[in-house]
Simulated scan of single mutants.
Amino acid sequence: MDLNNLKSEPIVVVGGGFGGLATVQALLAKSDGTSVILIDEGNRFVFKPLLYELLSGELQLWEVAPQYSDLASELGFIFLQECVVEIDEEAKKVITSSEIEITYSQLVISTGVTTNYSFLDNLQDYACGFSNLNDFRIIKNLIIKINNSSEYTNPIVIAGAGPTGVELACKISDLIKDRVEIYLVDKGNKILPNCKSFNREKAIESIGKRNIRVYLDYCIKSVGKTFLELYSTDNETKNFIKIDYSTLLWTAGLKPSKSKFLDHFLNENQKIKVNEFMQMDEYKNIFFVGDITFCENAPFPSSAQVAMQQGSLVAKNIISLRNGNELQPFKFEDLGEMLSLGIGNASITGYGITLAGSLAFEIRRFAYLMRMPGFLLSFKSSGSWLFSKKIINRLFSQSA
């Protein structure tokens, strides 16, 4: 591929997560013939809400983490597996670690977030997150070891009782069949504090049926190789608990993915402050998408659906900018939420329904597979679900 022979300066998207790929897809759908280049350090897009089903074997790798090269072939964008090290805003250039220089017409930055291990000394040495395929492999191997060895007797500790922590706790509990206890720790006074009440109630029910012990109003103050210390956040009790543990899974904080070129864009809260059009006021030709962004006038949650909606809007605004038309402000439309609550179990609030159980699990899976980037992948994934005799029989038996 010769980047020097492009017919015009391309639109460059840095970061191939939900926001980045949504931007690419929307740009290509409204194509004016301008080349679109996607740059990402990895070789696969990871559909993170379905990592739990990959962990349990309910879905396969190709369904959850397709290769960018396959998506590029189908959708018609250019993919570069590179690390961006510098952005020259004046010259409108993106420079990679292998010294590739790309002059862009418009630039979209959607580099996402990763696990934040900075809360405690040596935390990264002892903890594992759940935000990428490497984390998945570590936890998958842990489950295999627990199921095939009697050496693991101490509990698995999961820090953070948000969606990731709760979903991970339920799935792992089912996979290890109660061989070891799971401790779910959170400094707040309830699990899933920002989730819909119906989903929270169903999550509490699911946790109560499993070998999961919940420590609310507690935070981890220190961690070593084999033990950690919990302190109560309740000023009146000030309880202290020392726990011998087998594994620590950290879902209690995120930070922007490590990218030095982002440093001068970030504010004191390690976010990129954007205007309503998803730009910084200083750089009208650069747009920002996803969890790295923050809008003071209209704050929005950090989620995949927000990133995808932002990506679609940014694509429209780039086309408008190129045509000299007015830009449109971002307005988040809450489509509801879906939680995985163990093998074959889920809870849904949204899409006009509140539903929990096995049917909710199948609807959640189908809804996510239909959102997979690329028509062929989405069709193949959803078709794999739809024509499964096991699934068809289950749906008919429940509706009878």
Rank of each mutant, 00 (worst) to 15 (best):
T96D: 00
I102A: 10
G76T: 07
W62C: 04
F119A: 15
A72H: 03
Q67M: 10
S97V: 04
F130H: 12
T103I: 03
L107D: 05
I139D: 05
V85P: 02
E99D: 10
V108D: 01
F77D: 00
I95K: 14
E63P: 06
V94E: 05
G129E: 04
I139P: 05
K140L: 07
L50R: 13
E63G: 14
T115Q: 00
V113M: 13
L51N: 07
E99G: 00
L107F: 08
A65Y: 00
E58F: 10
L75N: 01
F119Q: 15
I87Q: 05
F130T: 13
L54D: 07
L80V: 08
A127N: 08
V108Y: 05
L54Q: 11
F45N: 04
F79I: 05
S73L: 05
K140F: 11
L80C: 01
Y68E: 02
V46C: 01
L51V: 12
N116S: 12
N132D: 15
S97W: 09
L71D: 00
L71I: 01
G129R: 09
S98G: 06
S97M: 09
I144D: 11
K93G: 06
F77A: 03
A65V: 03
Y68A: 06
L59H: 08
N116C: 08
T96M: 01
S98R: 13
K140M: 06
D125A: 11
L120Q: 11
E74D: 10
S118V: 09
A72Y: 02
S131M: 11
W62Y: 12
L61W: 02
G76I: 04
I109D: 07
I139Y: 10
L50M: 15
L54H: 14
I143Q: 12
I109V: 15
D135E: 12
Q106E: 11
N132L: 08
T115H: 06
L120Y: 02
S73M: 04
I139S: 09
S98D: 10
F130E: 07
K145C: 01
D88W: 02
Q60K: 15
L55M: 15
D121R: 15
I100Y: 03
S98L: 09
L51S: 09
N122K: 15
T115L: 01
S131R: 15
Y52F: 14
A72V: 02
I144L: 13
L61C: 06
G112T: 05
A72G: 02
K48G: 03
L61Y: 08
Y52G: 06
I138P: 06
V64L: 08
D135W: 14
L107P: 04
I109Y: 10
G129A: 04
K48H: 02
V84E: 00
